[in-house]
């Protein structure tokens, strides 16, 4: 699509030239390293080491990291007035949203890729990770993170304040993360199960994270991303009618 690449590269450049993005990346890698090491300590007595330690941490961590990576993407364009120029450039509204989303997802992919390299340490110390589990967990958290980023993008489209966008997306992601806990207090088992299938955890903690690759989980995350991008595009379009 016309313009997706141009938008993608501008945002990517933005990440790599902004001290703020480096700060987020540093926190991300530091915390992932911390969870990796503490898991490694555990594995001294309790072998083998768990290759899903980092993805499992990220399933919680992305509640905070995804909003930080996306909150300014559209809010800032609205505030600076550049949105008016973007919307009069010969590119579609979807190209703008998709370009920005892919850029956020791409940056996250790079960070995730760096954490994957930690696993090499396991090989070096002779603690061969369960490869199948590692691959499933990483693919899972990659999709999971994409879904979180798409939620962040929706709120960034909704307001011209990055703080508000960031706060609202954290709240939403928190709800999507903890939603299955509501299942613990409802008496109806069927209802609890349904609630769980609507949450992020329900499609990660008992499948990808333990090395199980299920089509329904892929569909859930892909569907969530598609729906969120669709909503973000609609929000941007509606700006023209205001």
């Amino acid at each position: 699509m016309n313009g997706v690449g141009v938008i993608f590269w501008r945002e990517m450049r933005g990440y790599f030239t902004s001290p703020y993005a480096y700060l987020i990346a540093a926190a991300f890698l530091l915390l992932a390293g911390f969870f990796f090491v503490s898991n490694l300590w555990l594995s001294v007595e309790q072998t083998p080491a768990d290759p899903a330690a980092i993805p499992e941490f990220l399933s919680f961590g992305m509640i905070f990291f995804a909003p930080l990576l996306t909150m300014r993407m559209l809010a800032e364009e609205t505030r600076e007035g550049t949105m008016e120029l973007l919307l009069t450039a010969p590119v579609s509204d979807s190209a703008i949203i998709i370009g920005k989303f892919l850029s956020a997802w791409g940056f996250y992919t790079i960070l995730l890729g760096i954490t994957a390299s930690y696993q090499i340490i396991l090989v070096n110390i002779g603690a061969f990770p369960d490869l199948g589990k590692a691959v499933a967990a990483y693919i899972g958290i990659w999709l999971y993170g994409g879904a979180c980023l798409s939620v962040g993008l929706v709120y960034s489209a909704l307001t011209d304040s990055q703080i508000v966008a960031g706060f609202l997306s954290m709240a939403t992601l928190f709800l999507l993360y903890l939603g299955d806990n509501i299942g613990l207090i409802v008496a109806d088992v069927e209802l609890a199960r349904l609630l769980r299938t609507l949450t992020l955890q329900g499609h990660f903690s008992t499948s990808f994270a333990v090395g199980i690759f299920r089509a329904e989980d892929v569909v859930f995350f892909a569907g969530l991303i598609t729906a969120m991008l669709f909503i973000a595009i609609r929000i941007v379009e509606s700006r023209r009618w205001r």
Binding site: G14, T17, G81, T82, L85, P90
Partner: peptide, 19 residues
Amino acid sequence: MEVRRRVGYMPERVPLYPD
């Protein structure tokens, strides 16, 4: 789209990317 390709526009408040 054809129209947008042929137009140069400067809005009232000059839109800039400070970084």
